[in-house]
Design a protein around this nucleic acid. Structure first.
Lengths: 406, 406
DNA sequence: GATGCTTACTTCGGACCGTGATTTAACGTG
DNA sequence: CACGTTAAATCACGGTCCGAAGTAAGCATC
């Protein structure tokens, strides 16, 4: 039922450009020779397409390497400063905007804390726009050199009609009290740059797939364990979005039908048992006035000191977490599960073995054998990188179309 | 990260053939005119490709329709008897083999009950092979006219390396006690036909998508409620398989971590609460010696008579079922959820409203609003049709390559 | 230091595709 | 029977990839 649309002979070239660009981007400098071998294209076509990419300024030659006895290979790479990307992280405590080159090297960043005004939409949008202005000004980069702005937000993102320039992007978030916020329209009023918005957890997952523990996997789930719990599902190399791109809302999966009350209003959600917020609250011994992170660190420290209540609480969490991961294993049959998020990075080293054991005992044997469960490698600061990944991904997929829109 | 492989100009034609074939197959007789409009191909290409398909015998002209004032449109359709398909259902009580033409009209069938020998592998394979022989002989159709044999089996199917002619297909099933059965090799020893094997629930889901309640949906989950519980996930029009094509094992999702013991050996699985087997057992008042279906029918009848234990048991099941469907809604964000399977068809009419309500109260609001929950329309006999769908799908995707192998 | 060998890249003819304009076919109307 | 209308077929064109042949750039050997 996969109804591919019309394809003209020109799309072939776009495809070839995209393939070569992907290879060069992810598999470092390569010669035309190797490029042909790994992409399956004939030498003639590789020369042809690479020539085009070079004259577009997208690819450049970078040194050469001797080839025993013969003419040396000329290495090629994607020109890092041919274009730039902006990533925005709308986090729980701040709005962070960063500007990257194509190699995702951070050239400038701008942080704006969110303590006082909370998540008032207009204020957040204003911070984003001024942040974008700041990083552009500080680096002296033209808007025309920016492929797009990727934004990671808390909550569910409705992508709207593609082709109408992001105007249809709407965000729903119960945690920061955003109800059908037309973020696309609000941002469009302040910038002409192409907009790409997605859930922050999903952008972090994307970053983990490209540059972290997910490298090389085609089917994976990045389980994000923070204040709440989320997941980013990668199927056959790209994000699984579902009908309205809200797929992967793992935190409100039931582990106890009719169990603990969750902040989403329902009962028995995973998040109500293992989210950092829930853990600290259930423990009840965090230093008064401490933040969530401090509270969780205190819980971990208490467990390391063998305090019974902390130890048993963490053990129970690992059990629930593992059981919920078993659900992911059964339903998505990934080759890898990556536990990320700040709480995951904090508790992971201690809990991983117990989580793996629980997953093994709760999942079906066959899919469980196909899956490895690992810790993520990227901190929460990777959300901006992941966000920048959105326009970058578009760029690579389009075969290097500088003016491509979402 | 979608690394498409090498594409030659010839693949364009394959793609065009596939597109037109799909349209003609699913959208009935169409003229070249309409075909061009809905596929986006130019008139010239449509004429060209259709001409090729006609001379391959895959498409035929079937009447014409006047077009006000001008030359009448000639209608085209896929030639139904250009090729044939065999579907096999390895069920719990029988092995059923059916032969279809391209329009999936059943031309012959052969049933072999499984009561005495149980699911001894060699015996089942023998029944399948003799069944295939019977339907071929009875219809007088050559093996060369059969595109392939689709098989629906209970349990998880490992597809093995594609390209080695199905030899790598291995089946794991805890319910019929098949452990790593090399079904591909066993069948290959008795027939040269191309083999396509998948889980029976998945083939039923496929049938429901093509010809039942799933028509038109691109993102859907078919929840199969029978003796056990399974699911078939459709993402963007095609089956979601996961890394080793065992995705969608919904029945062993946890609804109560550490809860009731399930036949899979784990605890708290959905199947242990709402599977027909579990329901009948928990009710405990089924007529002694009755089959599972009779037991479930008796349970339903008791509930219709307002017997308290039956009513509350069914209400509780609907609650669990709805909660588990909420998990599917959150994780997969489908536009439609279809409840099928024989138990689903039996209990569905009574339980659907309660299931919908439970799903609403357990799922996140936004994705829930995007999803409708409906009953399936196909009975369990559709498993063979769904199985035949496997080679058919391959056929259409390949653009009508008669000799295509899986 | 000239020749040959090896390997990397470039060039070019050939087969093929889809587009879009033009031509031909098939019908009703006046 | 000419005319308008619509459907389908034809064809020149620009474009694609492939594969073979040609060129470039090193090294080894004599």
């Amino acid at each position: 039922m996969a109804e591919r649309g019309k394809q003209t002979v020109r799309d072939l070239r776009r495809g070839s450009r995209s393939t070569l660009l992907h290879r060069l981007y992810f598999e470092g400098p390569l010669s035309r020779q190797e490029l042909g071998r790994i992409s399956g294209l004939s030498g003639g076509s590789v020369s042809n397409v690479v020539g085009e990419l070079i004259s577009d300024g997208l690819v450049e030659e970078c040194g050469s390497v001797e080839s025993d006895g013969g003419r040396p290979r000329i290495l090629l790479q994607v020109t890092p400063d041919r274009a730039h990307l902006i990533g925005v992280d709308v986090g729980e405590t701040q709005v962070r905007v960063a500007l990257f080159d194509l190699a995702l090297t951070e050239l400038a960043a701008s942080d704006h804390p969110l303590s006082d005004h909370g998540h008032d939409v207009d204020h957040v949008v204003e911070l984003m726009l001024t942040g974008i202005g700041e990083v552009l000004e500080r680096t002296g980069i033209e808007e025309s050199q920016v492929l797009g702005v990727g934004v990671g937000v808390p909550g569910i993102v409705e992508q709207g009609d593609p082709g109408e320039d992001g105007l249809g992007i709407v965000v729903h978030s119960q945690t920061v009290d955003w109800d059908a916020v037309p973020l696309g329209r609000l941002l469009r009023a302040g910038t002409k740059l192409p907009l790409y918005v997605d859930n922050g957890a999903k952008t972090l997952g994307q970053a983990e797939m490209w540059f972290g523990a997910g490298q090389g996997a085609r089917h994976a789930v990045v389980a994000l364990f923070g204040s709440g719990v989320g997941a980013c599902v990668i199927a056959d190399g790209s994000r699984f979005r579902g009908a309205t791109s809200s797929a992967g809302e793992w935190g409100h999966t039931k582990v106890h039908v009719g169990g603990r009350l969750c902040r989403c209003g329902s009962r028995g959600c995973l998040e109500a048992y293992v989210g950092a917020e829930a853990l600290v609250e259930r423990w009840g011994e965090a230093p008064p006035g401490s933040s969530e992170k401090e509270g969780l660190a205190a819980l971990l420290a208490a467990a390391e000191r063998d305090e019974a209540s902390a130890v048993s609480l963490l053990a129970e969490s690992a059990e629930y977490f593992g059981a919920a991961i078993a659900d992911l294993v059964n339903l998505f049959n990934p080759e890898r599960i990556i536990i990320g998020g700040w709480a995951g990075l904090l508790l992971g080293p201690r809990l991983l073995p117990a989580i793996q054991d629980a997953a093994t005992s709760y999942a079906l044997r066959f899919p469980r054998e196909q899956t490895s469960i690992e810790l993520g490698r990227l901190g929460p600061d990777a959300v901006t990188v992941g966000a920048a990944t959105l326009p970058l991904s578009r760029f690579l997929d389009s075969g290097g179309d500088i003016s491509a829109r979402p």
